Computed example of a mutant assay.
Amino acid sequence: MIGAACALYAVRAGLDVVVVDRGPVAGGTTGAGEGNLLVSDKEPGPELELALLSSRLWREIAEGPRPDDQRPPARGVGRAVDGRAVEYESKGGLVVASTPEALTALTELAAGQRAAGVETVAVDADQLLSFEPYLTPGLAGGVLYPQDAQIMPTLAAAHLLRASGARVETGRTVTRVLRGADGAVRGVRTDRGDLLAPAVVNAAGTWGAEVAALAGVSLPVLPRRGFVLVTEPLPRRVRHKVYSADYVADVASDSAALQTSPVVEGTAAGPVLIGASRERVGFDRSFSLPVVRALAAGATRLFPFLEHVRAMRAYLGFRPYLPDHLPAIGPDPRAPGLFHACGHEGAGIGLATGTGHLIAQTLTGKAPDLDLTPFRPDRFAEEATP
């Protein structure tokens, strides 16, 4: 998704773009995502600023021209994305607290987010069922986030790539980032020959560390495994993305151990998606029954009716984790011409548009709309220097 967004905005900025992927479109983390476009789980700071920018850009895509718009695209700017095709749903998020203490912490977080530009609505305990009639009774209260939304990530990535008009080379593996005698990037070597270019964007997600190493630089991206349970199709009973206030703490945690917190959301197609788990176990793709049981237990605590619903399947993916929980976005001074757009952990779908927009600005020499200092790709190398 990040690569697709970078391609879309770079072409719109007037650049010629080639997207190279060793697998199919959305064959990695994007295809394993839930498609969340969230501001609710971001603490005030650089990531929330990026989320707000991205949220605005996703809305522009969703409200863009429809298939019956026959106007040809302007030369060099790609086609408009069909907003309906990405299944954008502005359903909002509802974060709930089970205890008065958790509600106090959630309310304080919401106050800081509101000061940063996030729309928040306090929901008293006796109002919760008016928003989600099937919620378990006895919760302390919650906060509604109207800006939270969802897309279908696989479709969205494909449509962004198609709209960009970029040349897409799938099933082609990058084996080296080419650099000249002066150290500047001059393209990539692949298993099907060289592709020459004055700029290379590392948008390899969880595998961003591997691509960085091909250019001779380090970037400590690590996989953080997560499972998702998918139920049988149901009439719409879960109206928002609903999750426990504990989820925000799990997202910000540095622990490598297993963490689970209930996240439940309905989809336009009918199935309910259930998460969320986090653990750093490398690229271990083994199915874990204890994790899936924990997800099911958490979901039924929030929505008791799910106890009688069948799960159709479970799948897993790997979030691209960086130690300070911020992505790497922008030019790498260690390799002129190399740009990074990876390490977004579980927020890459939501942050894709803002990231692509900022990358396109830096590629064309414009001042980016956000300060990229907190996202500098070489910040970890500086920390490692004695």
Rank of each mutant, 00 (worst) to 15 (best):
A181F: 11
T154I: 06
V95R: 08
P336F: 06
P235T: 05
L15F: 01
E60I: 01
V217W: 04
D126L: 05
L128M: 03
V185A: 14
L15S: 03
S255P: 07
I359C: 02
R285A: 15
K241G: 01
G208Q: 13
V19M: 03
L94K: 12
L155T: 00
A249Q: 13
V238A: 04
L229W: 11
E60F: 07
A4K: 09
A215I: 12
P333I: 05
L106D: 03
D16L: 02
D369V: 10
R376W: 12
A102C: 07
H308F: 05
Y9V: 02
Q113Y: 09
K42P: 13
P333E: 15
F339R: 02
E63K: 12
A157N: 00
E49C: 00
L322V: 06
E89S: 15
T120K: 00
L144N: 03
S255F: 09
Y243E: 00
G298F: 12
R379E: 14
Q150L: 01
S253Q: 13
E49V: 00
E87K: 15
G93K: 08
G165L: 04
S40Q: 14
E89Y: 10
V168K: 10
G141A: 13
R172K: 12
V121G: 04
A197N: 11
V292K: 05
A245P: 06
A341Y: 09
E382G: 05
P153M: 00
D371Q: 09
E63V: 00
V96P: 04
T170G: 05
L370D: 14
A328H: 10
D148G: 00
S40M: 11
L316I: 03
S288W: 14
G193S: 15
L214M: 15
P146Y: 03
H240N: 02
F380R: 09
A328W: 08
R376I: 00
A252P: 01
F318G: 11
L195Q: 07
A311P: 04
T231L: 05
V292N: 15
